[in-house]
């Protein structure tokens, strides 16, 4: 399955997010901006939940391209230690089980567009080790 845009995920399996590191300051941002001021850098697969909310109404189209039949979805910020805090969905977790500080791992999830095409968007799920514990 294709990512929702180019240059978001690395080619490896499983993939990682691609951030951009400022050549001048070393600061990391996501996604990697175009131009030559930032160097692409693969971001950590593991992180912790920094904050989140649940989107309860269908965002306006355009620009939203999700299905007409709306299901609420999570919008989270995940801290990748020493790198950057990235905005992403959460997957494989019930809304009521989401907790700030929980351990997460990168797991891109399918996003069905209103055109019928399905693409992958950045997402994290509870870390395997945390589940086993």
């Amino acid at each position: 399955m294709q990512a929702i845009a180019e240059n978001l995920f690395t080619d490896e399996q499983p993939p990682r997010l691609i951030g951009g590191q400022s050549k001048a300051s070393g600061r990391i941002v996501f996604p990697c901006p175009e131009g030559d001021e930032f160097e692409p850098v693969a971001l950590s697969r593991e992180g912790t939940l920094w904050s989140y909310t649940i989107q309860r109404f269908r965002p306006k189209s355009p620009p939203y391209q999700g299905p007409e039949a709306f299901e609420p979805f999570s919008v989270a910020y995940v801290e990748l230690p020493g790198q950057v805090i990235v905005e992403a969905r959460l997957t494989d977790v019930a809304f009521e089980d989401i907790a700030i500080g929980m351990k997460l791992e990168f797991a891109p999830m399918p996003f069905e567009k209103s055109t019928g095409e399905t693409v992958l968007v950045p997402a994290f799920r509870p870390a395997a080790m945390a589940e086993a514990a």
Binding site: I4, P63, F73
Partner: peptide, 8 residues
């Protein structure tokens, strides 16, 4: 894509 995915 940021808007397409519902973040705007």
């Amino acid at each position: 894509w940021y808007g397409e995915a519902g973040y705007m």
